[in-house]
Design a protein around this nucleic acid. Structure first.
Length: 274
DNA sequence: AAGTTCCCCTGTTAGC
DNA sequence: TGCTAACAGGGGAACT
């Protein structure tokens, strides 16, 4: 469940460790990860190059290579990048990059849901099917009350589901959608088009605050997700409603139910609405 | 057309 | 205890 904060933490971790090392070898053990390129062709394209910058667009990781080509990686539920000085292949290591200093970058994904795509340059990558449809970055100026209110007015989705829609605003996954609704005291099944301008203003403010706060704490480590096998985040200790039993504001029992197929936590007393 | 459901997959847990 | 079934979920496809 890496969401924006977890992806950002992975990016920071990678930028610290793997930049400007020549890729001398790539081993691929799970070919279906690669969606728009054959693994053999991918290997031909990247061997001899190095990663010069790693950034993020929504929950997608963009690995910029030294000839400006781009590897776009989505971790989905369980994808992880481990930087290692040992070559030993662990269970679910699906791709191993070898660098010229005999260190390694290993992509590990127990559920095999992750994806990797490869593009000639950043411009083409951003125009690709997967990236072109993405909505605003939550930390951008443009993501403000006006923007959100205009979109919510046009949608009959439940607000919790709306927040998960990456074509509106990127980076929010199930955990933070729950946390944002709670922080705003909004009932997660409120129809988006019923939200007031004030509520949109609050959602924007709390989204930025919660995501920033989580990045600061190295993200949320929950179930089996940690941002690398060496480090874990601790924002899970700050969660107010997700996977909680009791409301920290009023003491009532936190309700768990599925909303559009996603596990949803909320306080019936504090999150009013319909 | 927009909204909803199903599916991919495997480790974990609940239930018998 | 040991098996099976249910569950978790991001995003795309296939539905309504």
């Amino acid at each position: 469940m890496p969401e924006l904060p977890e992806v950002q933490v992975v990016i920071n971790y990678l930028n610290k460790n793997i930049l400007n090392k020549e890729i001398t070898h790539v081993d691929i053990y799970l070919t279906k990860l690669f969606k728009n390129i054959k693994p053999v062709d991918f290997i031909k394209k990247v061997v001899g190059l190095s990663f010069i910058e790693i950034k993020r667009r929504g929950k997608y990781l963009l690995f910029k290579l030294s000839n400006n080509s781009i590897m776009v990686s989505h971790l989905r539920m369980e994808g992880k990048y481990n930087y290692d000085t040992q070559v030993d292949k662990q269970k679910h290591d699906h791709v191993i990059f070898t660098f010229n200093d005999h260190t390694f970058l290993k992509y590990n994904d127990s559920r095999q849901f992750g994806t990797i795509n490869f593009y000639k340059n950043e411009e083409i990558a951003l125009k690709s099917k997967e990236l072109a449809k993405l909505g605003l970055e939550p930390f951008s100026e443009e993501f403000n009350a006006n923007y959100l209110y205009n979109l919510t007015k046009k949608s009959s989705k439940l607000i919790k589901t709306f927040l998960l829609d990456q074509t509106k605003v990127v980076g929010i996954g199930n955990i933070y959608a729950n946390e944002i609704c709670f922080a705003c005291k909004i009932y997660p099944k409120t129809r988006a088009n019923l939200l007031t301008k004030k509520q949109c203003e609050l959602i924007v403010k709390e989204t930025k605050r919660i995501l920033h706060e989580s990045v600061k704490h190295n993200g949320t480590t929950i179930h089996t997700f940690s941002f690398s096998k060496w480090d874990i985040g601790n924002y899970q200790d700050k969660l107010k409603v997700h996977e909680q039993k009791k409301c920290q504001l009023c003491g009532n029992k936190i309700i768990y139910e599925k909303i559009n197929g996603r596990g949803t936590y909320y306080c019936k007393h504090c999150q009013k609405g319909k």
